[in-house]
């Protein structure tokens, strides 16, 4: 997994609440058995005027010019600024995969849906929760070429005017993200504890351990 330390990047504002995972990546793309390549289909129904299908070549599809990510000034944005309850809906990890594949590395919102929030950390995306007033202020400050600097170690966001906004990320997740650590390897460090738990549990609930 890619480590996240500091990032200075262009911000794209997506001013909508309750953006669900169906909007982030429509369900027809879930049929893929791959992990990469979802970026071109991110927000597919909003981004294009036609109907997208997996494996479709997106280079000549008609764009919805009204949609914010299609505006030239937000090309190359790596930070997404949005509203509350981002990522609600299904547990599909294709949503963070698509965001990551598109190039987003951080998402700022007043709140996130639980499963989506978890999935971000597992895919090297930093979801940042800020109070609604701070998010409002960032939306209001948005101007052409608006960039933010995010420092995960210091847990600060620096605005173009040099103002610092603090945020907090749970210690364990921060450590993993800062070092790009693989979750499974970390858990397998506790293999002895897992085995000890199973031995003890087998006494309490033997029926669970009578497997073929």
């Amino acid at each position: 997994m890619r480590a996240f330390t500091t990032l200075t990047a262009l911000v794209a504002p997506l001013d909508r609440a309750n953006i669900d995972t169906d909007a982030i990546i429509p369900k027809q793309f879930l049929k893929s058995i791959r992990r990469a390549g979802f970026g071109p289909y991110l927000f597919d129904e909003w981004r294009y005027l036609d109907h997208g299908e997996p494996e479709m070549d997106c280079t000549n599809r008609p764009l919805n010019q009204e949609f914010v990510l299609n505006k030239p000034q937000y090309k190359g944005a790596q930070i997404l600024l949005t509203r509350e309850n981002f990522g609600c809906g299904s547990s599909r990890e294709h949503a963070p995969w698509a965001l990551e594949d598109y190039g987003f590395r951080a998402i700022i919102a007043p709140s996130f849906a639980d499963i989506f929030f978890n999935n971000c950390f597992k895919n090297g995306i930093l979801p940042i929760v800020l109070p609604a007033e701070s998010v409002d202020r960032l939306f209001n400050e948005m101007a052409d070429g608006y960039q933010l600097t995010i420092d995960l170690q210091a847990q600060t966001i620096t605005t173009p005017s040099g103002q610092n906004i603090g945020f907090s990320v749970d210690e364990n997740r921060r450590h993993r993200l800062l070092n790009g650590l693989d979750d499974i390897a970390l858990s397998l460090q506790h293999a002895d504890k897992i085995k000890a738990y199973e031995a003890e549990r087998a006494k309490r609930a033997p029926w669970l351990f009578k497997e073929a």
Binding site: N119, K122, S187, I194
Partner: peptide, 20 residues
């Protein structure tokens, strides 16, 4: 509870998940 695909892999490999 529902989980994402990396957690599916995690549960397969360790029979455990990291949760709060």
């Amino acid at each position: 509870f529902g989980i994402g695909t990396s957690e599916v892999e995690h549960a397969l490999a360790t029979q455990c998940l990291v949760q709060k």
